Simulated assay, not measured.
Amino acid sequence: MANVGMANVMVIGSINMDVVNRVHRHPRPGETVHGLGTSYHPGGKGANQAVAAARADARVTMVGAVGTDGFGDELITNLQRAGVDTAAVLRKEGTSGLAFIDVDDAGENLIILSAGANGKLSPSDLVAARPLFAGADIVLLQNEIPWETTRAAIAAAHDAGVRVCLNPAPAFAVPADVLPLLHLLAVNETEAEAVSGVKVTDDARAAEAAAQLVAAGAEAVLLTLGGDGVLYRDRGGRSIRLPAYPVDVVDTTGAGDTFIGAFAAEWVRTGDVAAALHFAAAAAAISVTRPGAQASIPARAEIEAFLAVQRGGRT
């Protein structure tokens, strides 16, 4: 287990360069709209979650791949600046992963992924990383690398007795035999519907989806609801519904990843689900007030200061 006050987080997943276009509104099919500017931000769901956990003061190891293009060095350097161990990040011939993101005036985004090196990360690449599982408290996984690689990682973590958190994004139906191996299934409304079959339209349907996923085998479910907050439910019958902190939204890109990374770090560090939910909600709230994915992720000191203000300055 982790040292007191320090969580050991292992992230296996995607590393992307986000190409972000600002628009007044998203185009309809067949329509062309004027862009307001283009910027480049390190991203990828795996890398975002790694940075979020690291900025929450966890010890983080990243397992993934970048290409031999010009973005590869920048993506690795950015992770290192955040305090993420990149020794297990591989180079794959060709392009790094790319995400083409349109963000409108309301801060809502549309995303197209080009897998690049992420799509070349294979189960055999995990062999060299197997010793890292022994030092991890939790492994974070998503769905932006090949599923066979993610599934192999889940099995390796299970064999090592390490907690597993799966964020099945982009959304897909997680195989029934995998759900019992998950200590935490982290989903948004779209992903919850893809896995449970329940369309999340209100709190009652969110509770129904979470209950179904726990009944199907997941030990706990974290259902993020965007501006409506989050719902947590676990096998022990504990249910926590937390509203989002009200902020002025600039860009929602990476907010879910920020929540997951921050939650994992604080959950492992304290063992307190409710405290971790508040901590993660604050991290996500701060992140949406800034543009970009990793660039928007706050450090622990910012999160704690935000929570102090929300408590009326009480410590």
Rank of each mutant, 00 (worst) to 15 (best):
L141S: 03
V250W: 05
F172Q: 11
G30P: 05
T61G: 11
A169I: 12
S124D: 15
M6K: 14
Y245K: 04
G72T: 13
A308L: 11
Q49S: 13
T258A: 15
W267T: 05
L222H: 03
V33C: 10
V214A: 02
A7L: 04
A176V: 13
I15W: 01
P291F: 13
G5E: 14
V178Q: 04
R59V: 00
M10A: 11
T315P: 02
V162P: 01
A153W: 10
G64A: 03
I260W: 01
R269W: 00
A117I: 11
L166M: 10
G83N: 08
D73P: 03
Y40S: 04
A207L: 15
W267Y: 15
L277V: 03
L231D: 04
D257K: 06
T289A: 10
E193L: 01
L242W: 09
I286E: 05
G44E: 05
I260N: 14
V247M: 08
V198T: 14
F279G: 04
L166W: 07
E189W: 08
G292H: 08
V66E: 05
V127Y: 05
T86N: 04
E31K: 02
P246F: 11
A52S: 14
R235N: 05
E304C: 06
G217M: 13
T86K: 04
G313I: 09
G271S: 10
T61Q: 14
T201Y: 07
D177Q: 12
I240R: 06
D159F: 07
A58F: 00
L132K: 12
A155M: 10
A56W: 01
G313D: 02
V230A: 13
S296A: 15
L113K: 04
A134Y: 01
L90V: 13
V11Y: 07
N143Q: 14
C165K: 05
G254M: 13
A128I: 13
G72S: 14
A206E: 02
G67N: 06
D73H: 12
G313C: 10
D228W: 04
L141G: 03
G256S: 08
E266R: 06
L141M: 10
L231S: 03
R311F: 07
F263M: 02
V4N: 05
R269C: 14
F263E: 05
F259Y: 05
D85Y: 01
A274L: 13
D177Y: 09
Y245D: 11
S239K: 07
D234V: 12
A117L: 13
S296V: 05
D177R: 04
A169P: 04
V195P: 02
A218N: 06
